[in-house]
């Protein structure tokens, strides 16, 4: 929009001048641009350097950084558009209002349209939209789905050979996490190694929840009996918040917990320690699976799907095994 407003208004002002706008009338469109252009540049620069680095969700992971970059790019495009429209409206109100120009108001230019303006506007908005689409698609595909849930058969997968699978199990109203690479133990808080690509396998035991690891830039719905996979790569150590982001009933507002990204060594230690400490619990858990049927007796005569062997440790953290 921003780049078309000039052409648009220039030609309509030219037309108005031709149709007897009067000599000595200021070049309104040039004035608007003179207000708009510096303001847009200053606002964009200020935004990018002052607010840009602090835009959520930060830079803790690849997907978080991607989301932040996308937000900043979109904002830098949106700001001049919004300013352009506001300045146009403000200038029109200030400059041509009936109370400022006394006399018969029925002397406004009676233009019913202007092909150049209309064509320019449509071409301009279309090119912005197509540009945004190309950029957004690249940002979606290159970093393996941008942290969003891709369903059970992800088509944009990480380049990294080693991926740590972590299962997120949502139920009314809490999240638990299972680490298939370490014997499938289950914890109530999420610990992740730094500099590692994580594959979150999000599932639910009852209604639809949504696993939103805010600072990680990861969001994936937890559906009953569905395995929703989301990828991200951790870049910084630190704490993060996990919230449920899909209305799941009474205590939805209180369904959150915390996690942290630690160094690889610390994670190894933690995982091995926890595996040992929880060994007695783990053996009573249902065997690890990508999805679970909530009823422990196998509701409706169905049994746990036996399509995965999560216990074999491949390379460092165990690449996800293909389903049988």
């Amino acid at each position: 929009m921003s780049n078309t407003t000039p052409g648009a208004s220039a030609s309509s002002s030219a037309e108005a001048d031709r149709s007897g706008g009067g000599s000595g009338e200021p070049h309104h469109f040039r004035r608007m641009v003179m207000v708009w252009a510096p303001l847009a540049v200053v606002a964009d620069v200020l935004f990018y350097f002052l607010a840009g680095p602090h835009i959520p969700p930060g830079k803790m992971t690849s997907s978080a950084g991607g989301a932040q970059l996308d937000f900043n790019i979109l904002f830098i495009i949106a700001l001049p558009v919004i300013l352009g429209v506001w300045i146009f409206m403000g200038y029109s109100i200030w400059s041509w209002r009936a109370s400022r120009l006394p006399g018969d108001p029925e002397v406004s230019p009676n233009s019913h349209g202007n092909f150049k303006v209309q064509f320019g506007w449509i071409a301009g908005t279309s090119s912005i939209v197509i540009g945004l689409f190309v950029f957004g698609t690249l940002q979606l595909i290159v970093p393996a789905g941008a942290g969003g849930g891709e369903g059970p058969t992800p088509i944009w997968t990480p380049q990294s050979g080693t991926v740590l699978p972590v299962q997120v199990i949502a139920q009314q109203w809490k999240f638990t996490y299972r680490y298939p690479t370490f014997g499938g133990f289950e914890t109530t808080s999420l610990v992740l190694p730094n500099d590692t690509t994580i594959a979150f396998h999000v599932t639910s035991l009852d209604v639809i929840h949504d696993f939103w690891a805010y600072q990680l830039g990861v969001k994936a719905d937890a559906n009953p009996q569905a395995d929703n996979v989301a990828f991200t790569t951790t870049n910084h150590v630190g704490g993060f918040t996990v919230r449920c982001d899909e209305l799941c009933g009474l205590w939805h507002g209180a369904m959150f917990n915390y996690g942290k990204v630690v160094s690889k060594a610390a994670f190894e230690t933690w995982a091995e320690t926890t595996k040992t400490a929880l060994a007695d619990n783990t053996k009573y858990l249902p065997p690890f699976a990508w999805t679970y049927i909530p009823d422990a007796n196998g509701a409706d005569g169905l049994y746990y799907p036996d399509n995965v062997d999560p216990y074999s440790k491949i390379e460092i953290y165990g690449a996800q095994k293909t389903k049988v």
């Binding site: 648009a8 429209v85 029109s92 109370s99 406004s108």
Partner: peptide, 18 residues
């Protein structure tokens, strides 16, 4: 965006009453 084109084009040099 067409709607904004139409409205902004209508505002151009209009003797507006508020």
């Amino acid at each position: 965006g067409f709607i904004y084109l139409v409205t902004l084009g209508t505002l151009w040099k209009a003797r507006m009453r508020f």
